[in-house]
Simulated scan of single mutants.
Amino acid sequence: MILHDYWRSGAAYRTRIALNLKGVAYDQRSVDLRTGAQRSETFVTLNPQGMVPALEVDGAILTQSPAILEWLEETHPEPALLPGDPVARAHVRAMAALVGCDIHPLNNLRVGKALCEGFGADQAAVDAWAARWIVPGFAALEALVARHGEGWSFGATPTLADCYLIPQLYSARRFNVPLDAYPRLLAVERTAQTHPAFAAAGPDLQPDAD
């Protein structure tokens, strides 16, 4: 497998976590979003959307991290990142979607560039914009972890919810969002920091990291 990613991309980060949890070996190809490498003819041929991650596997190109993570769960079922019970699976998917649909898309790199280039926002304004979506999302996640967590976001083992949460906590710090109001999320993060799959996926350890 070849994972086309960028070290600070939240979507790529969650994909690395899931690949590591599944014990799947992969090579990495850096796509530097800051220089516009994602818009190069070579990469757009690979992924017409011009976004990371993209996963090459068995002659296919998989895009969009939610689809990649679901494919991983289907093709590499152990260890399971979704519970066996259908209602529990729905809860985990909802927690993941809270980050993947309602927080992350509103504070990724291209949105930040649009705020700066199209609306004249400075970094303080970009930080405030990001916090506007992170804060209520994390408040909801804090309540859900209180309801369902047993050491991890849902239950006593890592799930897709954790693959989404940990990169979003990293992103929140980049935008200077205070996190003291979310002790349960931070407790999950501390647990993840001791897990090899999460630790190895960290942005600062990637080959293309600054």
Score class of each variant (00 low, 15 high):
residue 88 A to Q: 07
residue 14 R to W: 09
residue 56 E to S: 12
residue 117 E to D: 15
residue 172 A to L: 07
residue 206 Q to I: 12
residue 29 R to I: 03
residue 23 G to E: 02
residue 94 A to P: 01
residue 78 E to R: 02
residue 50 G to C: 04
residue 136 P to W: 05
residue 136 P to D: 11
residue 206 Q to G: 10
residue 116 C to M: 14
residue 120 G to C: 13
residue 122 D to H: 11
residue 172 A to F: 02
residue 8 R to T: 05
residue 87 V to F: 07
residue 189 E to A: 13
residue 79 P to H: 10
residue 184 R to H: 06
residue 75 T to K: 06
residue 29 R to T: 08
residue 158 P to S: 14
residue 145 V to H: 05
residue 207 P to E: 15
residue 68 I to G: 05
residue 139 A to Y: 07
residue 189 E to H: 12
residue 139 A to K: 04
residue 210 D to M: 03
residue 36 G to I: 11
residue 97 A to V: 00
residue 79 P to F: 01
residue 119 F to H: 14
residue 43 F to G: 04
residue 15 T to H: 14
residue 166 I to A: 03
residue 143 A to F: 07
residue 126 V to F: 13
residue 85 D to C: 03
residue 136 P to Q: 01
residue 44 V to R: 14
residue 112 G to H: 07
residue 142 E to P: 11
residue 155 G to Q: 10
residue 74 E to M: 14
residue 175 F to Y: 15
residue 85 D to N: 04
residue 116 C to F: 13
residue 99 V to G: 08
residue 68 I to R: 11
residue 128 A to E: 14
residue 14 R to T: 12
residue 68 I to N: 10
residue 11 A to N: 15
residue 172 A to D: 05
residue 70 E to R: 07
residue 4 H to T: 00
residue 93 R to A: 10
residue 109 L to C: 07
residue 96 A to P: 09
residue 89 R to M: 03
residue 135 V to C: 00
residue 14 R to L: 09
residue 5 D to Q: 01
residue 23 G to H: 02
residue 42 T to F: 07
residue 61 I to R: 00
residue 14 R to S: 14
residue 125 A to W: 02
residue 87 V to M: 12
residue 72 L to C: 09
residue 79 P to D: 01
residue 204 D to S: 06
residue 144 L to C: 03
residue 31 V to N: 09
residue 22 K to D: 04
residue 72 L to Y: 00
